[in-house]
Simulated scan of single mutants.
Amino acid sequence: MKFIGSAAKTVFYLKKIQGQYPSWRLQYKIKCKSTEIELTNLIRNSQIKRNQPVAIIAREQLSGFGQNSKTWVSPEGGIWLSAAYPIFSKEFISQIFNLSIGIKICEMLRQENINVSLKWPNDIFFGSKKLIGFLPRVITRGKEIIYVRIGLGMNILNYTPSEGISLSKVLQTKNINQHYWTAKVLKALHDSIECNNKKEYVIKSANKFLTKSFLPNGYCPHTWKIKDIDSNGNLRIQNETQLKVIGRF
């Protein structure tokens, strides 16, 4: 497939970063309501093919949504994308998929000397502020997983709410190449698929990157503390008398 414009620039960096990268099918939107809606429409009209993941990338997203349908502020200057990655397997471990994405993004950023952490189940934090959020889903047919979907937002040069932080503030520069970072994110998504069969490594890495500063909603930090992530990808919290296991769903 011939790429032009923004897609071509991202593919250029993807080749430099990854070499033999999967044959991504990329579409850029100047502005859209939601990349999730755009991806759904694309998949409805075009069959998912083996070895050809798809990503819709928007410069600006008007009505993005995240976990529990929360509003996803997506102004110009960030990376807003939705991807579908073909799996076609019964062996894919869906319970740790969010963790495999999280650890690969953490590894990617730490290689750039950006000291991030994983906020269970699907956020990447720099200090006390959110840098990246992602929303993974698994699409099945019977017992076979056909493909996975990932919605992702990364603050780069954009305005952020008080609870967020942009990469430009982290690095203290506005000289940031968004196409380079988009390619880095796509590589991390690919790597998260590749490591899915290494459950022990994923859980161990997730615990290494896990921040214990943010309890799930509804739990008092004066009473409860985060213990760890268990072997099934669940978060374990404890107080003086109880150990509680919290699933992602």
Rank of each mutant, 00 (worst) to 15 (best):
Q242C: 06
I156A: 06
S46P: 03
Q111P: 00
I30C: 07
I57Y: 14
Y219N: 03
E36P: 01
K212H: 11
A183S: 08
K130Y: 13
F92Q: 01
S100Y: 01
K184G: 04
Y28W: 15
L42I: 09
C106F: 10
E144Q: 11
K29R: 10
Q178E: 15
N45D: 15
Y159S: 12
E38A: 15
N51T: 07
K31M: 10
N239V: 10
R137L: 03
D191T: 02
I246D: 03
S63I: 03
I176F: 02
I43A: 01
W224D: 04
W80D: 13
I93H: 14
S82T: 13
G164E: 08
K227M: 09
W80S: 13
G247R: 14
N207Q: 06
Q172N: 15
Y201L: 05
T182M: 09
N68S: 11
L62E: 15
K199G: 00
I48M: 15
L14C: 08
D228S: 11
N45I: 08
C195E: 04
M108K: 14
K143E: 14
N196Q: 13
G5F: 13
I30Q: 12
T173C: 06
Q242K: 14
I57P: 00
E76V: 11
I150K: 00
E112S: 02
P221F: 14
N68H: 10
M154H: 03
I43T: 04
E38Y: 12
